[in-house]
Design a protein around this nucleic acid. Structure first.
Length: 280
DNA sequence: ATCCTATCCTGTAGGC
DNA sequence: TGCCTACAGGATAGGA
């Protein structure tokens, strides 16, 4: 999303802004619409799952950014010609002087748009694997601090920022690690493998412009193409692409996890002993 | 302190 | 066809 926006949006002067009036995760700030008059976005950055649209106002000030988070169903669209009808669930439309328009659409309205000081780090955001490559030793030290299942650890944005529910399952499959393992139980070797798998899963998905299983669209309105490359996510009951075992779905912290019990074999230490003790 | 559950909201798929 | 339930890319307040 960042790559697309940075090709389309910077430099175009905002002529008008429309809003739906509905609140996203938070209501839009007072004066949101008028705050854009005559200025322009200058760059698009990303930290974790947050996008920064750096802003230069009409009087040349550039100390603010529009912070955006897509939530579950949020997406930006950039239309080169003014569309006849606004798409469903559009909540903000920036119309530029050249007649093109940027839209923020979000069916479930878990997304976020708010002004922030340009250098502010978003809340609850830890290490971003694309800012600083995750190393085995660093990950190993972080894992040692958590008793949570490794799958839940990967979703915790305060630890590693940017991994969502799809790529948490994908990274664990690539590393051959069971999602049920406690984070702190991973060996140094496993931490090393997982670090590499995180980079591989995220990197490949970005090259394919993300995963669309329902309504995600890139700013040209095109679905992401990574869906057919998914190794486990959404493949419950289907054969593992590596060993042909059936992919299983479990629920962890209220979220679906998909994995292969054969390729991601090793159980949580203590789990077997415990359940055995209970039976006895 | 850490981890998990419920919640916000709308759409869709599947069972009956 | 319609009604009902379960689930969906996320974050987070508050309870255990």
């Amino acid at each position: 999303m960042r790559r697309h926006l940075s090709r389309r949006v910077p430099g175009r002067v905002v002529a008008a802004v429309w809003t739906s009036g509905l609140a996203l995760r938070k209501p839009l700030a007072r004066g949101f619409r008028t705050s854009f008059a005559g200025g322009r976005f200058t760059a698009v950055r990303r930290i974790g799952k947050f996008l920064y649209l750096d802003w230069e106002s009409a009087d040349g000030r550039s100390d603010r950014s529009l912070l955006a988070h897509l939530g579950m169903t949020g997406h930006f669209l950039h239309a080169t010609a003014k569309p006849a009808a606004r798409p469903a669930h559009a909540h903000v439309q920036w119309t530029f002087e050249d007649g093109s328009a940027l839209l923020f659409c979000d069916a479930r309205r878990f997304g976020l748009l708010e002004w922030i000081a340009r250098d502010t780090r978003p809340p609850n955001v830890g290490a971003d694997p694309t800012e600083n490559r995750i190393t085995g030793p660093w990950l190993s030290a972080e894992l040692a601090k958590s008793r949570a299942p490794i799958k839940s650890f990967l979703l915790d944005q305060r630890r590693i920022a940017g991994i969502g529910n799809i790529y948490a399952s994908e990274a664990l499959f690539r590393a051959g690690i069971s999602p049920r393992r406690r984070a702190r139980s991973l060996t140094k070797d496993e931490a090393e493998r997982l670090a590499g798998s995180i980079h591989a899963a995220l990197g490949e998905a970005v090259r394919y412009r993300g995963t669309t299983f329902s309504d995600f669209r890139d700013p040209d309105g095109e679905p992401g193409e990574y869906g057919t490359s998914l190794l486990v996510y959404g493949r419950r009951g289907e054969p593992c692409k590596r060993c042909r075992s059936k992919i299983r779905r479990i629920v962890q912290s209220g979220r679906s996890t998909f994995y292969c019990v054969t390729c991601q074999r090793k159980p949580a230490p203590g789990a077997a002993r415990k359940s055995l003790a209970r039976k006895v």
